[in-house]
């Protein structure tokens, strides 16, 4: 009996399917995502933003030099720095109440809020400026967000990223800021918002090295 040539062709098509391998690194990415998932939402980050040891060292060196420079500047004209610091950079501080302005002289005067906090947070170094922010400024702002994420403090991370977006108006590390925001939203339980932002990120940054990591935040519909 002559074998049916269609059987051979079918077999060749199925063999082509058998030989097909998953995209490169797919298994590793899956494992990474699973480990992150299992380690709990509070540890939802997959890979640190400044991942490799070399980049981490560079970051530390960079941050140290920025801290020294800022420290020197603060020592020289600390009062001046404090006076030009806009109030909107201190969202944690309560806004002055109207009653203070119309209060009687019998009332004890409210304790003045110190112009500069005793322990000045890193965020205090991010100031609005006429000139565009430097790479160091942007790195510093994102480092703060990353530090907050590392401590599982999603609200603080989101505040730092808001400052990056709206006060610093960072441009150079916008993609990295988006990745951190996605992680912060996911960490804070806003998985729908994280998914939406991740979807947009993947569409707008298809060649970003973070795209695979970001894709893990996209919910399947």
């Amino acid at each position: 009996m002559t074998p049916d040539p269609l059987d051979k062709l079918s077999a060749q098509l199925f063999a082509a399917a058998r030989e097909e391998a998953p995209p490169e690194g797919a298994e590793e990415r899956a494992l990474l995502a699973i480990k992150r998932e299992l380690s709990g939402r509070s540890k939802a980050r997959v890979v640190p933003l400044f991942g490799s040891p070399v980049r981490r060292l560079l970051m530390v060196a960079l941050l140290a030099s920025v801290a020294i420079a800022v420290g020197v500047a603060l020592t020289r004209d600390g009062e001046q720095q404090a006076s030009i610091r806009p109030e909107k950079l201190l969202p944690e501080a309560p806004a002055p109440k109207v009653e203070r302005a119309i209060g009687t002289t019998l009332e004890p005067a409210p304790a003045p809020r110190p112009a500069v906090p005793a322990v000045r947070p890193v965020t205090g170094q991010v100031r609005p400026r006429a000139m565009p922010p430097s790479m160091q400024d942007e790195l510093l702002a994102l480092k703060e967000a990353q530090t907050a994420l590392s401590s599982s403090d999603a609200p603080a991370a989101l505040r730092a990223l808001d400052r990056y977006d709206h006060v610093l108006k960072g441009k150079m590390l916008r993609a990295e800021a988006s990745v951190l925001r996605i992680e912060a939203l996911a960490l804070g339980g806003q998985s729908d918002a994280a998914s939406a932002l991740a979807t947009r990120f993947v569409e707008e940054n298809p060649s970003s090295p973070s795209v695979d990591r970001v894709r893990t935040f996209i919910k399947s519909k």
């Binding site: 998953p22 995209p23 797919a26 899956a30 995502a33 699973i34 894709r215 893990t216 399947s220």
Partner: peptide, 16 residues
């Protein structure tokens, strides 16, 4: 292939 990657990850995540 790329959708299969996402789906495979989801399957294994559910299983683990």
């Amino acid at each position: 292939p790329s959708d299969a990657e996402d789906a495979a990850q989801q399957v294994l995540m559910i299983a683990t």
